[in-house]
Design a protein around this nucleic acid. Sequence first.
DNA 1: TCACTGTCAAGAGCACTGCTCTCTATTTTG
DNA 2: CAAAATAGAGAGCAGTGCTCTTGACAGTGA
Lengths: 223, 223
Amino acid sequence: MTATRTARERARAELTQEIKDEARRQLGEVGAHGLSLRAVARELGMVSSALYRYFPSRDRLLTALIVDAYNAIGEAAEKADPGQGPPRERWLAIWQGTRDWARAHPHEYALIYGSPIPGYAAPQDTVVPAARVALALVKVLTHTELRDIDGEVAPELRAQAETLTKVLGIIAGPETVARLLMAWTQLFGAISFDLFGQYVGSVDPADSFFAHSARRMAEFVGL
Amino acid sequence: MTATRTARERARAELTQEIKDEARRQLGEVGAHGLSLRAVARELGMVSSALYRYFPSRDRLLTALIVDAYNAIGEAAEKADPGQGPPRERWLAIWQGTRDWARAHPHEYALIYGSPIPGYAAPQDTVVPAARVALALVKVLTHTELRDIDGEVAPELRAQAETLTKVLGIIAGPETVARLLMAWTQLFGAISFDLFGQYVGSVDPADSFFAHSARRMAEFVGL
DNA sequence: TCACTGTCAAGAGCACTGCTCTCTATTTTG
DNA sequence: CAAAATAGAGAGCAGTGCTCTTGACAGTGA
């Protein structure tokens, strides 16, 4: 009984995966804007209406791809981390690994770090996968002796920083937490500017500049 | 003769502007994704095909809006600059003014700093307006005594920095130029993260964090 | 074994899109 | 005034997301 039901569920799971794979393939070719449900169905040899049994709308398909993309870039960041050795080296490796993934999958990156596609509704499913890269960076700092940094921190930000220290379990002052958030912002700001063409005319091959930023931000957070 | 020709050309210029205005209005409601040429034409009481006499394609209309948006955010940055007084105050004012504009026009901001809409072809018309915010920041530093910063700079980046010093006419070492580029990246990275919802769960009302970032980056570049 | 139930793909169809073409009215120009 | 350029209107094409209905099939309880 479970076997038969599983047979069906397995077929369903497989087809769901095939749809996502094909959609991701087309995403890489025509971007999110050009992704067409009908084209995906056509390529899979099925009729477009059948696809709605698996994804109730185009946006939901995109959301599924978004979650996958967050996990993929998060995994890339985690795998780039050697896990041991000098924290500074680990930090630089994570930065590089994150950028490498983004450059290899520009459309998927744009999907998650570009303009929000649907009506501004970032589903709840995305918040945990979205944090993976940031957590990889935090992890480097958790068992590290940071040179503590002083600095005035406004009450609102101080409160937010203290909440974060509890959630993340890191031992660092508010100024360090704020700097970590700035580094996180810098990481994705630089990748986005690079991929979206904002560096054209200034640091167009941005490799050297990106590596430089990674080093400076490592120092900036106290590494 | 010029008067008669002007009559038509003026009508044309006016209608071109009206189309852009209406398109911008709809952009604010439904975003770039939902912007429809037919809807714009409908609202203006004309037929959709007539609109093609003014913009040869939807992408070209969007490109016109992109140029306008770059100029608008650039002007916002310039107007926020008091133009005199302590450089640090000017720097902070420009950061704030830029963010304020972005928060007031999120869809227009997404248009220029989100995922590139057309097939990755950022038209040449956009590069000059796109630099206005950065130039406003540079302007603050030009007649300022910066405490010079040392630091190793890789050859590629050093060459790019030296090209920039010539183009911009600023007197600063490569390390300072690199830091300026990082600050520029930080500014738009923070605005994008804020508007695109990436700060949800960490520094959600990002006002305090943004102000903090502005101050820290001012110090970072030597102000 | 047989009817029942839930699942599936298929097809037709709706309202919409960007865009092209032709036709006609108007304006500008020589 | 006649010719040329420009304007808008309308029809139409190929494509889209999405809905609804229809018929086939698989698994279940009597």
